[in-house]
Design a protein around this nucleic acid. Structure first.
Ligand SMILES: NC(=O)c1ccc[n+]([C@@H]2O[C@H](COP(=O)([O-])OP(=O)(O)OC[C@H]3O[C@@H](n4cnc5c(N)ncnc54)[C@H](O)[C@@H]3O)[C@@H](O)[C@H]2O)c1
Ligand SMILES: NC(=O)c1ccc[n+]([C@@H]2O[C@H](COP(=O)([O-])OP(=O)(O)OC[C@H]3O[C@@H](n4cnc5c(N)ncnc54)[C@H](O)[C@@H]3O)[C@@H](O)[C@H]2O)c1
Lengths: 218, 218
DNA sequence: TATTATTCGTGAATTAATTCTCTATTGGAG
DNA sequence: CTCCAATAGAGAATTAATTCACGAATAATA
């Protein structure tokens, strides 16, 4: 119910693609030309058929007995994830997490180009962090309208997240990457993705809890 | 194939639980005593039956016409996620991301107690960051053996991730929260959870790509 | 007190995702 | 040149997850 939009690819598959890319990038560095599903599945502890189905989503065609071209596969996966085009982004909230994201060069490989950062704390405004200028958040909406900005990254606290999202919507930003633990309310044509670190912690600790009880039962 | 272990709860459900917790924590602040699945489902744009099934995993029992006790539900979800006990953790790699994690107080609410941090860069060693001492990584294994450390957090680059994981395994750490884009090889009784930020970016950009093509077709 | 609307809980039905099975292709070994 | 082993690809079967449908409980209201 109420799934705003139906996107074509199965999410579980989509979530596995970046891991394939990590393996492939390493293989490219090692000058390997071809790779098989079996190889990838061994690297990542997945079922080879699952890998094959996932890769098929990208439209790649492999050669029997040989596998897929590493280079072509990288390109196809990147295209599928939308990482083959540059996207301009604004980041709001230059705190601990915001600063870390600004310093992460790998995002450029994925087409994410953070052009300017914003905060409301006067101590941060005017600084340049990892080459990115920090301006007052009041200037964000107008700047977004003037330049074309595709993605807004929210790394403010949860209290401020909705108001920042509103400013982004006013600036015609169509994709929001939200790190605050808060459900954002936005128009239908804006896509929100919540990056929830705590989910990952929960998966870890709940598995640890289960393996403890297993031990107790023995 | 080769799923190392089968854990009882469906992962999709487990991944939704932290979001329920966010809503519930807010309701607790607002002094609400009871909450229904319908309410939660509206907040998070989910199906109410799905919410009900997820919550049932925690063993909570609701009252018809009223819903669930907010306080009890919080406790049950925390217990289910393994967030009701304190776990001692070491963090290795006090760079951009490592520093951000050290400064994130919310993790304490989830039972994560980062007791010491480690690096190999002499400029970082000896500092205290957000109240956590930074020591040389060589001391990590012995300290882990001496104190009981449950979780190891890896925030070094991908090149160093495996060697750090090896040190953690030697220190009898049984859960590894890995932020490096690298598949770690560990013994069967060690649980690894990969926190992959790029996955979330991929979900966002691929959805943006699809909604663009939709527009072009109109 | 009787009625009504809301919500939980559960089993069935549906849909999605994964895994299995089989065929065809192809490069390399004999 | 022939055979073999590895692999892609596609459809079927299975398993997992989600959604639907309905009965029972209960607080609020008439
Ligand atoms: N630090 C982490 O490891 C971590 C992990 C998971 C989630 N998060 C989430 O990420 C967000 C940021 O976390 P953090 O640790 O970096 O917090 P932080 O307090 O270090 O940074 C928040 C920054 O946002 C700025 N800010 C606040 N309100 C603003 C507004 N209205 N407009 C512009 N700027 C504003 C503050 O000045 C500050 O610089 C939080 O929502 C947090 O829950 C952080
Ligand atoms: N910064 C981000 O936003 C971000 C996002 C996603 C993933 N990651 C991943 O997290 C990891 C850390 O990223 P970062 O941006 O903080 O990098 P960083 O370079 O800022 O920090 C890495 C730290 O690890 C230390 N280190 C390196 N080798 C070590 C070793 N063998 N033992 C102990 N310490 C060692 C370095 O001295 C440095 O302090 C990387 O694997 C990166 O891919 C980072």
């Amino acid at each position: 119910m109420r799934k705003i939009r139906k996107f074509s690819a199965p999410e579980p598959s989509m979530r596995r693609l970046p891991a394939y890319l990590h393996v492939l990038t390493r293989l490219l560095r090692e000058n390997r030309l071809y790779v098989s599903c079996t190889f990838i599945s061994n690297e990542l502890y997945l079922d080879p058929t699952q890998v094959r189905k996932d890769l098929a989503l990208t439209g790649i065609v492999g050669k029997p007995r040989v596998g897929y071209s590493v280079e072509e596969l990288i390109d196809k996966i990147k295209a599928f994830l939308g990482w083959d085009v540059q996207r301009n982004a604004f980041l709001v909230g230059v705190g601990n997490l915001g600063t870390a994201l600004l310093g992460y060069q790998r995002f450029r490989l994925y087409g994410l180009n953070i052009v300017t950062a914003f905060d409301k704390d006067p101590r941060r405004i005017g600084k340049t962090i990892f080459g990115v200028d920090v301006l007052h958040v009041d200037k964000m909406t107008n700047l977004a309208l003037r330049n074309k900005i595709d993605i807004g990254i929210i790394t403010v606290g949860e209290d401020a997240a909705q108001e920042v999202a509103d400013l982004m919507v006013q600036g015609f930003i169509k994709g929001i990457w939200n790190f605050a633990p808060k459900t954002l309310i936005v128009p239908d044509d804006v896509i929100v993705e919540n990056a929830q670190l705590s989910v990952s912690l929960g998966v870890l600790t709940s598995k640890m809890k289960l393996s403890q009880t297993e031990k107790n039962m023995v």
